[in-house]
């Protein structure tokens, strides 16, 4: 454990963060949210800086990435506001902030497609549904008190026990991260990267033409398996001049330095080539959820004719007069 972070720093940071979260949960009396947020930020910062200092011992030449700390602070700070804000609308808006900061971390992890999918699907669709439901399912404020809170929003249930439980869980999880689990297999987790450039002959050819490596009449040789003969390890491609069904003057050329598989392309290969059933399964899950939601929320509002007439009368009364 000492190689990743000093244990005292880890547990002290977690404890300070736990006290901060427990202090800022909503309560009948005043709850010191600012103080709690500060304590939480200090605890989190202690742990992350502890990781960074130890990492800097091993790789002293790398500058620390400031963006990660900004995104982590925004994500967790907004997450704290989600669980401590008394008003559901603001909680949902802060959750959008958490999503945006997570998308920033996805981009730092070079998962660009998932970052934008996350913003579109989560911040754009799911959270808007939440906002709609919050606005549908909230009592309209009465005339005399426009700023009233419902009792179940104003008070958290067992804030200290819940925070203690949660941060005990965090301590165990981070202990497992920094000190390891025995008995895990050493090998066989990582799979070799697929040779995706072989499936993208047009892009390879365009890059080769742009670099001036091949002559105008030369083309990539397509092998019997339907894939281009591109060696991603050695970064070479086999080109030749097409002549009635076969190739003549075949030679190997080096690939340009900047030719790389983009995130969207490699994700698409993994998604549709190696796991072809996933998109259908995801579609079935979404269809089931949609059917379930329709069935659940479809309920006729029972109004008898007399009630309808009574409610219609105030509207039509002006015309009568």
């Amino acid at each position: 454990m000492g190689e990743i972070i000093h244990p005292f720093l880890l547990y002290a940071g977690i404890a300070v963060g736990g006290i901060g979260v427990a202090a800022s949960l909503p309560r009948r009396r005043v709850s010191p949210q600012l103080l709690g947020g500060l304590l939480g930020a200090i605890g989190l910062g202690m742990v992350l800086l502890g990781f960074t200092l130890r990492a800097a011992d091993r790789t002293p030449d790398q500058m620390p990435s400031i963006y990660f700390y900004v995104f982590a602070l925004i994500a967790l700070g907004a997450g704290l506001r989600v669980i401590t804000n008394r008003r559901p609308v603001y909680a949902a808006l802060y959750f959008i902030l958490t999503i945006l900061a997570s998308a920033g971390m996805y981009i730092l992890l070079s998962a660009t497609f998932m970052a934008f999918a996350l913003i579109i699907v989560y911040a754009g669709a799911i959270l808007i549904t939440y906002l709609f439901v919050i606005m549908l399912a909230t009592q309209a404020p009465s005339e005399e008190e426009t700023d009233s809170l419902t009792p179940y929003d104003a008070e958290a249930r067992e804030p200290f026990f819940a925070a203690a439980t949660g941060f005990a869980l965090l301590a165990v999880l981070s202990t497992m991260v920094v000190s390891g689990v025995r008995g895990l297999p050493r090998d066989g987790i990582a799979t070799p990267p697929a040779n995706e450039l072989a499936s993208l002959p047009r892009r390879v050819e365009r890059a080769l033409r742009a670099a001036g490596t091949i002559e105008p009449e030369e083309q990539l040789v397509i092998g019997s398996s339907g894939l281009a003969l591109v060696d991603a390890q050695a970064r070479t491609a086999r080109v030749g001049i097409p002549a009635d069904g076969s190739f003549t003057s075949i030679r190997d050329v080096g690939l340009p330095e900047d030719l790389a598989v983009r995130n969207v392309e490699s994700l698409a290969f993994d998604f549709l080539n190696r796991h072809p059933g996933t998109i259908e399964i995801a579609g079935v899950i979404l269809l089931m959820a949609m059917l379930g939601a329709v069935v659940l929320s479809r309920r006729q509002v029972e109004l008898d004719e007399e009630l309808k007439r009574q409610q219609a009368r105030p509207l039509g009364s002006e015309e009568m007069a």
Binding site: L76, M105, E155, R157, V177
Partner: peptide
């Protein structure tokens, strides 16, 4: 990756998960 390790991201992920757990346990809405 700018001096970051896997532990950084795993810790942020664990902290976010725990915030979710605490919120689920304490809030009544």
């Amino acid at each position: 990756m700018g001096g970051l390790t896997l532990a950084h991201y795993l810790f942020v992920s664990a902290a976010m998960f725990v915030l979710g757990v605490i919120g689920f346990l304490t809030r009544r809405n």
